[in-house]
Amino acid sequence: MSTLEVDSLSKAYGSVQALRGTSFGVDQGEIFGFVGSNGAGKTTTMRIALGVLAPDAGEVRWAGRPVDHAVRRRIGYMPEERGLYPKMKVGDQLTYLARLHGMPAAEATAAMERWTETLGVDGRRGDEVQKLSLGNQQRVQLAAALVHDPEILVLDEPFSGLDPVAVDVMSGVLRDRADAGVPVVFSSHQLELVEQLCDRVGIIKDGEMVAVGGIDELRRVGSPRWAVAVPAGAGAGAAGGGAGAGWVDAPGVRVLDAGTAGAQQRVVFETAHAGAEQAVLRAALDRGPVLEFAPVLPSLTELYRHVVSAREDVGGQDSPETTTEGDAA
């Protein structure tokens, strides 16, 4: 199986260090979500992979070999800065781009027809790009990334500015390409979407990868969390805790959240060692019927906030810089 490997990329723009040894890998057939705040280094990484920018150090490899011009022509790319010839017709433009990637004329035309149809812009082939709505321009932009039947897909914010229907179309196309054996890398700020769509994610912060892995794998990082729900007020008198969550208290257990909704009291807690949750379960059963007892996995959004803010706490002097970058973007 071939892998797209981003290996120890470094890049500085003047005094700003954009990438600091950024590394990750994407296997064939895998969708990799690339997340991070504005200015974290996502676009720079993608531009280097496409050869649009040269790294100061490190390299990008495909199937064990450095990505060269011949490989780049087999990559489908959607730049962050969208761009097509505004006065060129949609069909002509896509055919031209396919041919620039080395497709013979007849194949290029067929591919243009196929992708405009798949993406629902086949009725606009004869129109100039500038006459299309932004959403349709975005679809044409995706078609431009796909039209030469690429072996690798690198998409910078493909979902930004899309309506819900277009998001579904785009998701479907990405899944479909991945199923066809294409490694797909895309960046996004829509973390729910990334969580839903991606096999693996990488979180970048200040040019460094702070977390890379399968979504489930990442969610299991850190102390396990559990949720327990019991009827509200059950055994309240007995434990003397009232509506409080004092009854959950046990060695190695830390309550994160407790609340009552309707007739149900729900408590989320963290365990310091395996088995600690069993004591809580016993305590819950002592109080009456247990309505819910299950492990809780953090969402990608929680994970992202956790990872990003944790790093900020550690490196105090990093915070001002991060703030500045966020503001600038």
Binding site: I75, Y77, P79
Partner: peptide, 8 residues
């Protein structure tokens, strides 16, 4: 569009 072109 130049970025798209220069990628190929």
């Amino acid at each position: 569009v130049v970025e798209l072109l220069l990628a190929t």
